[in-house]
Simulated assay, not measured.
Amino acid sequence: MSSEDTLRRWRLILGRYAAQPLSRARFTAGDWRFDEALEYLYGREYEGRGLSRSGGGSSLDLSQLHAVDWLARSRKLFPREVFERMQSQAIERYGMTDLLRDPEVLNSLDASPALAKALLTLRGRLSADMRNAVREVIRKTVDEITRTLRKDFVNALVGRRNRMRRSFLKSAQNFDARATIAANLKNYDATRRRLVIDRPLFNARIKRNLPWDIVLCVDQSGSMMDSILYSAVIAGIMSSLPAVRVKLVIFDTSVVDLSHLASDPVEVLLTVQLGGGTDIGRAARYCESLITNPRRTVFALISDFEEGASPGALLGAIQRMAEARVKLLGLAALDETANPVYDRQMAQRLADKGMHIAALTPAHFAQWLAEVMD
């Protein structure tokens, strides 16, 4: 990369406060379009530090670049992943709530988990005429996540592989590599040193007939927005599956039973009230009261395990459920990156009482459920 290219890149990174302002002769027209879009958003970082936007060497008149224009230009300039990140940062980090005052503008935004989380956090400050637009963005986000995750839960929870019976359903997940090799050894080509697969074999799946109860107990404190979003979607997916009964409970210092909404993740998300303290023990005791068939019940606690109340009630409820043979799962994270941030000491105390603790993506959670229900 030439020194000129390096200089141009640093100018785009540093913005108008770069030590060596660039003239229009040094920047191409495309460079200036990038610069305008980046400056409109990230120039706010300097404002937050007490620096004026009037400084630097750029002649950009920011008043001429409004939020709607910025959205339209940025969508064309940047790759989708970059634009979605900029869009969410505009709302979450830089407080550009002017993007959320016009339903038409909101409908023009690209639905994404980041935008959905921002809207759910801010919805108490939105005008009444924005509710339908917010609901539509949430619905689009939920639909996209559902399309991504549904096959994992269907494959994991509807049936398990039956190695005694072959299937005509030729999917990679049902492929039986060992049996296929054994059945095709006669086709081995010694000259080319290759095994020719004439007849691949696939395992059939058998449906689970005995029902399972799954109790999702979800922390709705402010730090758990990712987990709430994916928990609502997972509850909706599992509610549609045969032989699975879902109970959905959310909590902070209070406990709210949303089992009647479990099949509608959009309504669940619009019902959740983020914030407040955390009383996990109270929620665990309530969920314990919902259990009627302990040996065919999974209790999944989705939390950062930051207990705000005395831990005795929580540990007691977990121990009683463990003694009753309830399958106990503790999820420290439930987002697509599975970045674990939780109270490890409390997690260890829960594990000592019989709860299995993990930090998992939603897809891995599906497999984990299948394993404990097998």
Score class of each variant (00 low, 15 high):
V255F: 07
G50W: 00
G308Q: 06
L334W: 00
R24P: 07
V372K: 03
A262N: 05
L195N: 13
L195F: 09
A118L: 02
A366N: 13
V268Q: 05
D189R: 01
R161M: 08
L71N: 10
L229F: 00
H66E: 14
D129R: 03
L248R: 02
E92H: 06
L201S: 07
D252W: 01
N107E: 11
R16P: 04
E104G: 14
Q348I: 09
A235G: 15
R93E: 12
Q64H: 03
T271P: 09
Q273N: 11
D102G: 00
P311E: 13
A332T: 15
P103W: 01
E4F: 02
L119K: 05
A177G: 01
M355I: 05
S54N: 11
E81W: 02
Y17A: 02
P79E: 15
A90I: 03
G159I: 01
D213H: 06
W368R: 15
L51V: 13
V341D: 05
D304R: 12
E36S: 09
R161F: 01
L269V: 08
P340K: 07
R161P: 04
A18I: 07
D69T: 11
V326N: 14
I302Q: 04
Y94M: 02
R123M: 01
V326L: 02
L328T: 12
H66R: 12
D257F: 12
W32D: 13
G55M: 09
T278D: 09
P362E: 15
A19Q: 10
R178T: 11
V272D: 06
K117W: 01
L290H: 04
D213R: 08
S259V: 07
Y286W: 06
E92T: 11
D5K: 10
R178F: 10
R163C: 08
L99E: 08
F202C: 08
R101T: 14
L195I: 09
Q367M: 15
W212V: 08
G43N: 09
D152T: 12
D257T: 11
A111R: 00
V154H: 09
A204I: 02
D279I: 00
S127E: 13
D213P: 03
A37N: 06
A177I: 13
K207N: 07
P211W: 04
I181R: 06
V158P: 09
S240C: 03
E47S: 05
V82T: 13
D69A: 10
R49D: 15
R166C: 06
I206Q: 14
R75G: 14
L157E: 03
S58Q: 12
L328A: 10
G48P: 00
A313C: 06
F299R: 11
Y17K: 03
P200E: 08
L261H: 07
R125Q: 15
C287T: 07
A243W: 00
E323P: 00
T148Q: 15
A309W: 01
C287Q: 05
